[in-house]
Design a protein around this nucleic acid. Sequence first.
DNA 1: GCCCTCAAATTTGAATGCAAAATAGCGACA
DNA 2: TGTCGCTATTTTGCATTCAAATTTGAGGGC
Lengths: 221, 221
Amino acid sequence: MLHEEVVGRIRDILLDGEIPPGARIPERELCERLEISRTPLREALKVLAAEGLVQLLPHRGSRAAKLTDKDMRDLFEVCQGLEALAGELACERISDAGIADIAAAHAAMVQHYREGDLIQYYRGNRAIHEGIVNAAGNPALSALYASVTARIRRARYVTPMTPQRWALAVKEHEAILNALERRDGAGLSHILRAHLRHKREEVLQAGFAETETSELTLKIA
Amino acid sequence: MLHEEVVGRIRDILLDGEIPPGARIPERELCERLEISRTPLREALKVLAAEGLVQLLPHRGSRAAKLTDKDMRDLFEVCQGLEALAGELACERISDAGIADIAAAHAAMVQHYREGDLIQYYRGNRAIHEGIVNAAGNPALSALYASVTARIRRARYVTPMTPQRWALAVKEHEAILNALERRDGAGLSHILRAHLRHKREEVLQAGFAETETSELTLKIA
DNA sequence: GCCCTCAAATTTGAATGCAAAATAGCGACA
DNA sequence: TGTCGCTATTTTGCATTCAAATTTGAGGGC
């Protein structure tokens, strides 16, 4: 069992919400489940703590990181900055084929929107944003972006999506694709920031619901 | 010995260049020196690998990360994006006292410039940039910035600083402070990007010298 | 003389064991 | 009855140990 694999699997467990934010991470249980000893598990937890997904309390174990509304706002701001940067760079560097790929992903996402398939829509949405970031041709940027979005992801999923917001998001995506096709870096950067600001507002409005359900899940568990 | 402390100490060893980029990290030696066993050392190495300071080769040990010119360029781009974002946010949020602190740091740095003390100048320079980033009031951003600059730092130090470049850098810093005092977010963002672009060009020109000295040190070690 | 092959030795990666700290449980006392 | 304090248990953090993989070195073949 490769070390990297352990990190990935625990990350997935955390991102799936199987261990709710703030809940204690049961070392022994995870060891049995992954069929590994405590050593590699603890190494993985240290790495995830460095990534911000896990909180390490000295002599008191590790917990799934619990993000406050402020933390979420902060992460969104960073995410905005990274996407804006990626957008500018992508416009300079993306190939026609790359644009075609993102256009295809966009079309697929719009199709999911029309079908009202929210889960698939989210997946497509994520693919487009990741695609733009990767199109910047900057692995360091991609890695940081992945780290930041991983922390945000769970909260984003609980967002109550209204028809109005959904329509707006799709419209914004049209504009994003359009700016990319025109290779309008400044414009794309601007749109991405506005787009994320809207997303952020949604999430923060959902903030209270999120924390409450977490508390609830915690008590049940 | 706290785990966090081990990470910090090894990070310092790497940033001080005591273990040159690309060189093998002698596990046993470090254990003796830090008076710890391999378990916490290896945990720390995994964390530093996640931070990008260490490369982990399966079954072949760990090495101090060796950054290519492309890696450096990428990191500078990210750094630019983060500083630009921080500049905008700082202009919205910084207090008058905060501006005064940065102005003081700036004055101190200019003094070091006049005295021709490059080391102290660099220290002051770093303090100002960190001050602006922290003034954004976004810990997540500060942490990411710290991580990125840590990776860049060593290369930045070997930059051959010419009088012209130095004068330009100081001039740009004047403009930075000025924009901050006017709370001109867009302007500050713009200046910071240009400022970093200049820095980047310096570093990349120094790239070859850097890699060669590293190779040399490697052979000696 | 050079290269390939095979075995010893070192080094890595993971499991287990052990001491210290924290939590939980129980009883005594106000 | 509620709270405080003490002990037992669990859990954490680190050291040690063990197996697997790689590197090193010697010997034989070409």
